[in-house]
């Protein structure tokens, strides 16, 4: 079945709304407008205004209301238009969603899913393009997932909804129109493990979300030169499936991390640190990182392209590592 990332996400929402009457979708323009990126198009008509709620532009209030509704027995899916806007709800996410279970000594749980768009590549400039999922991955009490494939776009939501704790689901904006084949019976997938998207012997490429495609493209080019790179898709950013990464490094002895976040204090830094802590003697070359340049994402195409991790950069990094 040919489908798109956007349609796969929509199917997941439809399945969740149909399967569990505690589930509802709420956010800015998710209903009448169909979602700012069209993900929830048609769901208002199908499920009605009690299940698909358009909210005012009050990120803190509706994200917090999602947390409260989860405490009250519902299974809310809250959509925030982009990760940049999630900063207006950061208080609720950090100080309530992530802490209530602990502060209450285990009495409360927040079974909530917050979806938001992340990432650059669409010339949307510095207030709509950032990759801040690494910040959220810093926070104990949250789970953070990043579907990079159609199957994950289709399958992660339901598993996230079953989870007793808050799950942040990051949709990469440049993936919405990506199309491909999806099994007609595609369904829920785990949200605990990283996946090897391309096996290889010579180097380990670690990526997630939007950079999985970049890493796969680079691996394809390297293969033409006889360099066989393994590509790992982290899938879940918190808690990290470090074992899958380390096991690969122990086979390939080289690690290149591709991260659309900024290098400083990033997920790529975390992966590198884990390799240094637990696989240092397995490495035959320094860890390489391909990250976004340390600038707010610029508007002009050539500037934006230059700021983001490119397949060329990944190819060069792998060559350095294997040389």
């Amino acid at each position: 079945m040919t489908t798109t990332y956007r349609q796969a996400l929509r199917e997941a929402l439809r399945e969740a709304l149909a399967k569990d009457e505690r589930v509802f979708l709420m956010g800015e323009d998710v209903g009448a407008y169909g979602g700012c990126f069209g993900v929830s198009l048609g769901l208002l008509e199908e499920f009605g205004p009690e299940r698909v709620l358009d909210t005012p532009m009050s990120e803190s209030a509706f994200v917090g209301a999602g947390i409260g509704a989860a405490l009250g027995g519902m299974r809310p899916i809250v959509e925030i238009m982009t990760v940049n806007f999630s900063l207006l709800a950061l208080d609720q996410i950090m100080n309530n969603a992530a802490t209530l279970r602990h502060m209450s000594g285990g009495q409360l749980g927040v079974p909530l899913v917050i979806r938001m768009t992340t990432g650059a590549g669409r010339q949307l400039a510095a207030q709509h393009s950032h990759s801040l999922e690494g910040w959220y991955a810093h926070i104990p009490g949250l789970r953070v997932v990043a579907p990079a494939t159609l199957a994950d776009a289709r399958g992660m939501l339901w598993t996230a909804l079953l989870d007793p704790d808050p799950v942040l689901l990051f949709e990469h904006g440049a993936l919405y129109n990506v199309s491909g084949e999806l099994e007609p019976d595609a369904g829920p997938v785990d949200i605990d493990t990283a996946a090897i998207r391309r096996p290889g012997r010579d180097a380990t490429l670690v990526a997630y979300g939007g950079t999985v495609r970049t890493a796969l493209e680079a691996a394809g080019r390297l293969a033409a030169d006889g360099i066989d790179a393994e590509v790992i898709d982290l899938r879940t950013l918190r808690p990290l499936d470090v074992e899958t990464v380390l096991a690969s490094v122990r086979r390939t002895h080289r690690l290149v991390v591709v991260d659309e976040g900024w290098r400083t204090g990033s997920l790529s830094a975390e992966i590198s640190a884990r390799a240094a802590e637990f696989a240092l003697y397995d490495l035959d070359a320094p860890v390489e990182r391909v990250c976004t340049e340390e600038v707010p994402i610029p508007y002009a195409k050539q500037l934006e392209d230059a700021a983001l991790p490119r397949a060329d950069d990944v190819v060069a990094a792998v060559r350095r590592a294997v040389s």
Partner: peptide, 19 residues
């Protein structure tokens, strides 16, 4: 967090109303 409880209250009320 000053003000931090208000959104929770709105959500709890929403859940009760929905149920």
């Amino acid at each position: 967090i000053v003000g931090g409880g208000l959104p929770l209250a709105v959500g709890l009320a929403l859940a009760d109303a929905m149920q």
